[in-house]
Design a protein around this nucleic acid. Structure first.
Lengths: 205, 205
DNA sequence: TAGATTGTTAATCGATTAACAATC
DNA sequence: TAGATTGTTAATCGATTAACAATC
């Protein structure tokens, strides 16, 4: 298994498989098949098998995959068998929702810091966090060794905050700002923009 | 131009082009090239040209694309040259953030109804909306002709709410619930799950 | 005109599917 | 054993890139 050779499109499907498997495990199921999992997530059985087999032989002919075992393997592959500290920049409505979000538990992440550049917000609390000044972002994130951040600032601020995050050593940015940002090759960005996602569907209406 | 022949992966890039073009227009630019736009959004110039040329000849040799004209065309293609009414189901933190979200303006959408099944929330206000009972979802959405909805309910409720939305005639669902849902072929779903997006990046850390 | 840039073709590259031997 | 299902190969399908004539 050489990470460099695995297509990113396969990596993108693994978290979806993992989510479905965890749900199966929660409901008490012990084993599943590529066909059953495929129906659940909307992917062909052949593709499920091909994707998983990139990383090892985790199934058994005749019986399929042991769910808990496969979950362990996928968590290891995706490196979410540990908890990643996440910095949140932008304490608007979306930032608040993410600071309170329960969906990071057991998925490998926890928010540990919240920043904003609005003087009227700095020092206030969001859930269990005290909003810090974005001006201190680098000096706070770098020594903490934080590699992951979520960006919920206005589009106009996104690139400059992203630059600071990169300077602070962040290598993965989940960008909620409605703008494409430029980052070095060794930094990953994922985009969440509800308008973009909706516009992708209206074409078919 | 036959919609059925356009690959979905191209449709998925058009909103990103549109977003960048609108930003260019806002900053006063008049024309752009496939190369300039490509650098901005992280796509090759050849791909930009190929994607756009699926729908017509919108550029000019030597000078490139007139930004406002291309915006008009893309908005027409994506059918966001009108405003789509959107129903929001789930008035938790994420639902509140989306109800207040300013980012739908000028992008083709507006939230018009908010539902929840929590008796303690029904009747309360979220921004300009009064939270309605999910039990009345079909009878409210269907006569209003709403085709687009956002789902911010718990995973356990997602499939049954999706079924009701489909019954109400909704054809496009933006699903924030952390679970894959099954829908008929003529209904589109897009998924937003911050943990999934983060897990897609931790592989590379 | 000379330079720039499109739209499109052909070539390349990559992803998905079908099929089946291996084997639990 | 018989049935089920994996892992993998080869074939198919689809997407991206490179290159360039057309032309603004």
């Amino acid at each position: 298994m050489n990470a460099n050779k695995i297509p990113d499109i396969i990596i993108g499907r693994l978290p979806v498989y993992l989510r479905a498997l965890q749900r199966m495990a929660d409901s008490g199921l012990k084993t599943t098949s590529s066909q059953e999992l495929g129906e659940l997530v909307g992917v062909s059985a052949a593709q499920i098998r091909k994707d998983i087999s990139q990383f090892g032989e985790f199934g058994k002919q005749g019986t399929g995959y042991a769910i808990v075992y496969l979950i362990e393997k996928l968590r290891g592959i995706l490196k979410v068998d540990k908890i990643w500290d996440v910095a949140l920049i932008g304490a608007g409505d979306m930032g608040h929702a993410l600071a309170h979000y329960q969906g990071f538990a057991n998925r490998g992440f926890r928010v540990v810091m919240v920043f904003d550049n609005d003087k009227s917000k700095i020092g206030k609390n969001v859930g269990e966090f005290t909003i810090e000044d974005t001006a201190h972002l680098v000096e706070r994130i770098k020594p903490a060794g934080i590699k992951t951040a979520m960006l919920t600032v206005p589009a106009t601020a996104a690139q400059s905050v992203a630059d600071q995050l990169i300077q602070a050593g962040v290598k993965a940015i989940l960008n909620y700002a409605p703008i494409s940002i430029n980052v070095p090759n060794n930094v990953k960005v994922q985009y969440i923009d509800p308008s973009i996602h909706l516009q992708r569907m209206t074409f078919y209406l």
